[in-house]
């Protein structure tokens, strides 16, 4: 396994959680959507936290790049946290229009962010942190799936 495979796999898991909310809303099942959204939110925050507290610091320490790609990724995480918060609040108010607007924005934000990580940052991690994979991946796994 590589960092790229491990982390990309978790991206797909987050996508599935995102879809589960949409599907519930498609059935007008607000309770189900709220529940699915909580699962989605947990998955996203766990992913951010695995990156921000484990993968990125290791990358920064090895490469010396503190203000480079990881900083851009942290900023995008912050933007996604805001969107998740806005979508959650629309969901609480049962506002389907507002939810779908924030969800759409969040989806594109997520996907373009994932693309940058999967095509650029994770391959760089695999290049620089190869020997740390065994120890680091175990800690990442336990953050992603506590």
């Amino acid at each position: 396994m590589t960092f790229r495979e491990l982390m990309s796999g978790d991206h797909r898991h987050c996508d599935d959680c995102f879809v589960a909310v949409e599907s519930a809303l498609g059935r007008d099942d607000w309770a189900g959507a709220t529940q699915a959204f909580a699962v989605y939110e947990r998955a996203m925050l766990a992913h951010f936290s695995a990156e921000e507290s484990l993968l990125f610091p290791e990358f920064e320490a090895r490469t010396g790049m503190r203000m480079g790609p990881t900083q851009v990724m942290r900023n995008e995480h912050a933007q996604m946290r805001e969107l998740i918060e806005a979508a959650a609040s629309a969901l609480r108010e049962h506002d389907a229009v507002d939810y779908s607007g924030y969800a759409e924005t969040l989806l594109i934000m997520m996907q373009q962010h994932n693309m940058k990580e999967e095509n650029i940052l994770y391959p760089m991690c695999d290049e620089h942190l190869r020997d740390a994979y065994a120890s680091l991946s175990a800690r990442i796994e336990s953050t992603l799936h506590p």
Binding site: E82, A86, D98, G101, Y102, E104
Partner: peptide, 9 residues
């Protein structure tokens, strides 16, 4: 962070 942008829709 001062003001949330309007969503895409």
């Amino acid at each position: 962070g001062r003001l949330m942008a309007p969503n895409m829709k």
